[in-house]
Amino acid sequence: MSSHTPKNWFKPVAWAALIWNLLGVIAFIMHIMTSPDMISKLPLDQQAAYSNTPLWATIAFAVAVFGGALGCIFLLAKKSLATPTFALSLGAIIMQQYYNFFIIDSVALLGISSVVMPLMVVFIALALIYLSIKGKQQGWLN
């Protein structure tokens, strides 16, 4: 196996990451398709947070999930464009989490459990950036 051939685990990890990011795309689509009737069934404080989400936070959500999915497609295609795409996605994740934690205070709104998923998202985004950089260094990505 040459140094330009990815390790055996590379492709399954890239596919798993793509599935993870596609779940994020589905979550985004569900978010933007949530009807006023569905929002009205939430507690009042959650209704206000949901209804008053600024456009920039929604755009950050879209860039985060679509950027992550596109970065995974670049990984699978063995393209070094994965790294800047993942970096853009991480920047959008940080913007989105700034909104969630510092503007609407999701911990007060939803409880401490609201921290788990955002931490996983950030950790996975960082791991994908690392993987893409390592892939470039090893000659797996061109």
Score class of each variant (00 low, 15 high):
L128Q: 05
L44A: 15
F74M: 13
L131E: 08
A125V: 08
S51I: 03
L90S: 03
G135S: 03
A16M: 05
T34Y: 03
L131H: 04
Q137T: 15
I29F: 02
L119R: 06
K134V: 10
P36C: 08
P84H: 07
I129R: 00
L22N: 07
S3L: 14
W20T: 08
I59N: 06
D45Q: 12
M30I: 12
A48Y: 10
L110Y: 07
T83R: 10
G139P: 10
A60D: 06
N52T: 15
I103V: 14
K134Y: 07
V13M: 06
F101R: 00
K134D: 07
I129Q: 01
F28H: 13
L131R: 01
W56Q: 03
G71E: 02
V65K: 07
L18N: 04
N100H: 10
Y130I: 14
D45F: 04
Y99C: 12
I124Q: 02
M1L: 12
S132W: 00
L70E: 09
V115K: 10
A62M: 13
T58Y: 05
S132F: 09
L75M: 09
K134H: 07
T53I: 14
T58A: 13
P118N: 06
D45S: 14
D37H: 00
F123A: 14
W140R: 02
L76N: 09
Q137Y: 11
P36M: 07
P12Y: 02
T85M: 12
K7A: 14
Q138V: 10
M117S: 14
I29Q: 11
I112M: 11
S106I: 10
I129E: 01
G135E: 03
D45Y: 04
K79L: 14
T53R: 13
N142R: 06
L55D: 04
W20S: 09
F28E: 12
M117Y: 05
V116G: 09
F86Q: 08
P12E: 05
K79D: 12
G111A: 08
T5G: 03
K41M: 13
A125I: 06
I39N: 02
F66N: 02
Q47V: 10
S51P: 04
Y130C: 13
P84S: 04
I129C: 06
S35M: 02
I59W: 00
L126S: 03
S89M: 07
L128D: 04
I39A: 05
Y99N: 12
K7C: 07
L88P: 11
L90M: 07
G111R: 00
A82H: 01
M33K: 13
I59C: 02
Y130G: 08
G91Y: 07
L75F: 02
A125F: 06
N142E: 11
G139Y: 01
C72K: 04
G139W: 03
F123K: 01
L42Y: 10
V115W: 00
H4E: 15
N8C: 03
A69F: 01
M30E: 13
I133T: 11
I39M: 06
A27W: 09
A82Q: 03
Y130M: 09
M95I: 15
I104Y: 00
A60V: 12
Q137N: 15
Y98C: 09
